[in-house]
Amino acid sequence: MCSDHVRADLQYLLSATYEERIAAIYKELWVDNNSSEAVFRMMNNIADVPARMTAPALLVVGPGGSGKTAIISQIYKHVKNSEKLLFISMAESPEINIKKTLRSALAMALELPPSSSARPQSGTDIPNEMREVIKLRGVWGVVIDEFHDVLLRPKQEQRTSMSILKKLVGSEYGLKLFCFGTVIARNALRSNEEFKRRFHEVELSDWVESEAFRSFLFEVEESLPLKRPSNLYSEKMVRLLLFLANGRMDKTLDVIRGAACYAIKMEVEQINEDLLKRAAMSPWGY
């Protein structure tokens, strides 16, 4: 049996059980692509910018499922000195009694008690505890996921959050900002002239028929423990995947993974057009 279509480090899975192979299919998968490489390159270039009156700020926008959170998960591997970055998610806390604000999210990321976010000298100040920990740890930048949630708050809270961000990028802290969110974040920032000037914007696009997409599919196929090649990068498969997933990153992977599981369970050992359609209709029906 030829196994050249599977990555060398995964070829052992070809003799594993159905359950083990399906579990492997659903493990976290990262494939470098043009969009993510561009973001990492910009982040590394920004990391090299010396201290100045206002630190650089980057806004990465894209629809849900376009790969923003996946990029954030890879920053540790692709961005220099990333252990000195502060990571914040503005998604609402599942704890009903806790209303997340930018200040409380900062406290959480700094491993400070929530109470330390509630004692600023004024509504827009950063508490002394936070200031000291930021400087003590040598934090040089802040990564904010779900950044649009900062901007979808009551006006007073929005103004407070914007004032805190302004202080973070100002000369006292000089922290570089890397914000990830939906186009709502872009639209909100464009209504604020001062912040529109501070942020450089990058938009993550959906896949289209291109060599970059074929290369992506080639690498994805190499990660699938199927005994026969599927040729996902062929013209007919590319067009079908674009149609089924509308070019969206997460949907594309969901369809391929579901189809691979069908291929294992039905013992055909390769993905074909019919299995892609089945997976799009019923991803867990295998």
Rank of each mutant, 00 (worst) to 15 (best):
I75A: 04
S122Y: 13
S66W: 02
P63H: 09
K135I: 11
L85Q: 00
S93I: 07
S93T: 12
I96W: 11
Q74K: 14
N81M: 02
E83M: 01
I98F: 14
K99V: 15
R103L: 11
I126Y: 10
I144T: 01
A107L: 03
I126L: 15
G62I: 06
D145F: 08
A118R: 12
A91G: 08
P94S: 03
D145G: 07
R119D: 07
V61L: 08
D145I: 11
P94R: 06
S115R: 14
S73N: 08
M90S: 02
H78T: 00
G67P: 04
G138M: 03
G138S: 03
I144G: 01
I72Q: 02
R137N: 10
A70R: 08
R137S: 03
D125E: 14
I144Y: 00
K77A: 13
S115C: 06
A70S: 13
V139F: 15
G141L: 05
E129R: 11
I144Q: 00
F147D: 00
A118P: 01
S89Y: 06
N128E: 15
L110A: 04
N81V: 00
D149W: 02
G65T: 09
R103I: 12
E95S: 14
V79K: 01
F147Y: 06
G67I: 09
P127S: 10
P120S: 06
K100L: 11
P94H: 04
M90W: 00
A70Q: 08
P63M: 07
G123E: 09
S115N: 10
G141P: 08
S122H: 14
L102A: 07
A118Q: 10
E132H: 10
I75N: 04
P113W: 10
Q121P: 02
L152N: 08
F87Q: 04
I88L: 05
V60A: 02
I134K: 02
R131G: 13
G141S: 09
G67T: 09
I134V: 12
G141F: 05
E129P: 06
I88K: 01
I96D: 13
T69H: 08
V150D: 00
I98W: 10
K100V: 06
L102Y: 09
T101Y: 08
L106G: 00
N81K: 07
L151D: 02
G141Y: 03
E92Q: 08
S66F: 03
S73E: 03
Y76S: 12
R119S: 08
M108E: 15
H148D: 14
Q121F: 10
I88H: 01
N81C: 01
Q74A: 06
S66I: 05
E111Y: 12
F87R: 12
S89W: 07
Q121W: 13
T69L: 04
S89C: 07
R137C: 04
I88E: 01
L112T: 09
S93P: 02
L152E: 07
V142N: 02
A91H: 13
I98R: 15
G141D: 04
M108D: 15
F87D: 04
N128Y: 15
G141Q: 02
S104V: 04
M108P: 00
M130H: 05
A70L: 09
R137Y: 05
K84G: 05
L152G: 06
V150T: 03
V150Y: 00
I75M: 08
T101M: 10
N128M: 15
L102P: 05
D149S: 05
S117I: 11
I126D: 11
G65Y: 07
S117M: 13
L86D: 00
V133E: 14
E83G: 01
S104D: 04
M90V: 01
S73C: 01
P63S: 12
